[in-house]
Amino acid sequence: MSLGKEFHSSTMAVLSKEYGYVILTGAASFVMVTHLALNVSNARKKYRVEYPTMYSTDPENGQMFNCIQRAHQNTLEDYPAFLFFLGTSGIYHPRVATGLGMTWVLGRIIYAYGYYTGEPKNRRRGSFASVALLGLVGTAVYAVYEQLGCQFVCRC
């Protein structure tokens, strides 16, 4: 039984041993996100912000709690994209993905601790995390280019 010209064999990407570093980077990111979550939990107790309240309206301590909570929330907003692009770019470029991934993790920690000062502008110290994420996006796009063998032809 023939499947016709549309079916052809393709090569599979084989994960290199170095992909283990990509996996470790993902694990490090989980530890970082968990650390930020624990900081929010501790801040809830300290500033008496009960669940399910997301933000405090307390004029005295609300700013501090909100900064701690927002640092975690903002990290979670980027987290799915980070994990996707880390995992996909690491297939072809595990060293680059690991370097960019660990830069993102470090940047998010610096971002959070800048936010924890109670001055939201101090979060910008970790803005290089966004550059690292863009690097992962670019590396993943390049991996797509390699996976498809440069055949970006639309057959509509």
Rank of each mutant, 00 (worst) to 15 (best):
V144C: 13
Y116D: 05
N122H: 13
T139M: 08
F65I: 05
P59Q: 03
Y55S: 14
G99W: 12
G4D: 09
V105P: 07
S130I: 13
T53G: 01
R44F: 03
G26R: 02
L134C: 09
I110N: 02
R70F: 09
L86T: 06
E77G: 15
T103G: 12
C67K: 02
A129S: 13
N42M: 06
A97I: 04
M1Q: 09
A37Q: 14
S10W: 12
Y142E: 10
Y145G: 04
A28C: 10
E18H: 14
L3Q: 03
E50C: 02
F7R: 02
C156N: 01
N122E: 07
S29T: 01
N39Y: 09
L83Y: 04
H72R: 05
L136D: 01
T103H: 06
G4H: 02
K46T: 05
D78S: 15
T75L: 12
Y115W: 03
V14P: 01
A27L: 12
L133F: 06
K17Y: 05
S9W: 07
K46A: 07
S29H: 05
F84A: 14
Y145H: 11
K46P: 00
S2T: 04
Y79C: 10
A81G: 00
N122I: 06
G4E: 06
E6K: 10
R125H: 07
S10Q: 14
I68W: 00
G138Q: 12
D58Y: 09
F82T: 09
T34N: 10
L148P: 00
G4V: 04
A97V: 09
V131W: 11
A13P: 12
T53D: 03
T117N: 03
F128W: 13
S29K: 00
F65S: 04
Y116H: 10
K17E: 10
V153E: 03
H35W: 06
N66V: 05
A112W: 08
D58N: 14
A129F: 09
F85T: 03
R155H: 12
H72Q: 15
A129P: 11
V137P: 01
Y111W: 10
P94R: 08
T25W: 10
C154W: 06
M64Y: 05
K45M: 00
H93V: 00
R155N: 09
A112M: 05
K46Q: 04
Y116G: 01
P52D: 07
S29M: 03
N74Q: 11
Y79A: 15
L15I: 10
N39H: 06
V14T: 13
K17W: 05
V96L: 13
L100G: 00
T98G: 00
S41K: 04
L134G: 08
F30N: 02
R70D: 01
T75R: 10
G90M: 03
I23A: 14
G149N: 14
R124N: 04
R108C: 15
M64R: 01
D78M: 15
D58C: 11
R155E: 15
V22R: 01
W104F: 13
C154V: 07
V141N: 07
Y51Q: 01
V131G: 08
L86W: 12
Q151P: 00
L38Q: 02
A143I: 14
L15T: 04
G114V: 08
S2F: 04
S56E: 09
Y21H: 11
F65N: 01
L136E: 04
L38A: 01
E6F: 07
Q147V: 05
L100D: 02
